[in-house]
Design a protein around this nucleic acid. Structure first.
Lengths: 124, 124
DNA sequence: CGGAATCCCTGAAGATACTG
DNA sequence: CAGTATCTTCAGGGATTCCG
């Protein structure tokens, strides 16, 4: 067994590439967009309304990134005013359980987190 | 049944508080710190070395935030040069499966994501 | 060793206005 | 409706220095 560093429990070491991908799918808005699109395909302004506080600029950027990463599909319907529908891709769909688990975790544990914050804040 | 907005499939709507918590636990470095601490308690500089590219400032901020949110515990051992050990809390421990699943997801799906990126980038 | 404090600077987000 | 373009602001990150 080689020992370039140390054999006992050398941690997995996440590559820069994987970190970047994680950043892109777990950022501020992506999670909410994915969550919403897992439930139903939505149009741009529907998403805007469904995700309060997101600006059009951030939403556009988020959607482009998710599309580029193959998690979301953009379908243009060239009717008159023009309609664009976003839907989850099969790849994105594989994230649904994970996202749900994440959201459930925050719901379940928020109270404990708040207690921890109070404890932390009040000491000195 | 009231209808302030609309009854059919009103999405869960994540509160601003939950969004903030998600942001704080899924940000660039927190995931890696939590992942590492789930495996073994570590000291400051051990974490630095285990997570390449993290600066001391970011690591400090990340640890403080995680500590405040009750996910990490800071243990000071007043020996001579002075030792500080960080360890996962019981609350933080409940995130382990989720984090592992997340990391596994990226490992499994990275190839497909890269193919999607190529497709996206080469079209016009 | 394990940080805190400072300065600088860039990149991302917000606001606003305009377009096909 | 579904964006693009522009301007500005501001928090976060990097580098460096200092401290118990």
């Amino acid at each position: 067994m080689q020992e370039t560093a140390h054999s006992p429990a050398t941690p997995p070491q996440i590559s820069a590439e994987h970190r970047e991908l994680l950043d892109q799918m777990l950022d501020k808005w992506s999670l909410h967009v994915l969550d919403r699109l897992c439930e139903q395909p939505s149009r741009f302004n529907e998403l805007r309304r469904a995700i309060p506080a997101v600006t059009q600029k951030s939403l556009t950027a988020t959607l482009r990134r998710l599309e580029r990463n193959g998690m979301v599909e953009r379908v243009v319907v060239s009717t008159r005013p023009l309609a664009v529908e976003y839907r989850i891709s099969s790849l994105g769909k594989t994230l649904q359980d994970l996202i749900d688990a994440l959201l459930r975790w925050t719901t379940v544990n928020m109270p404990e987190v708040e207690r921890a914050r109070e404890r932390f804040d009040e000491q000195t």
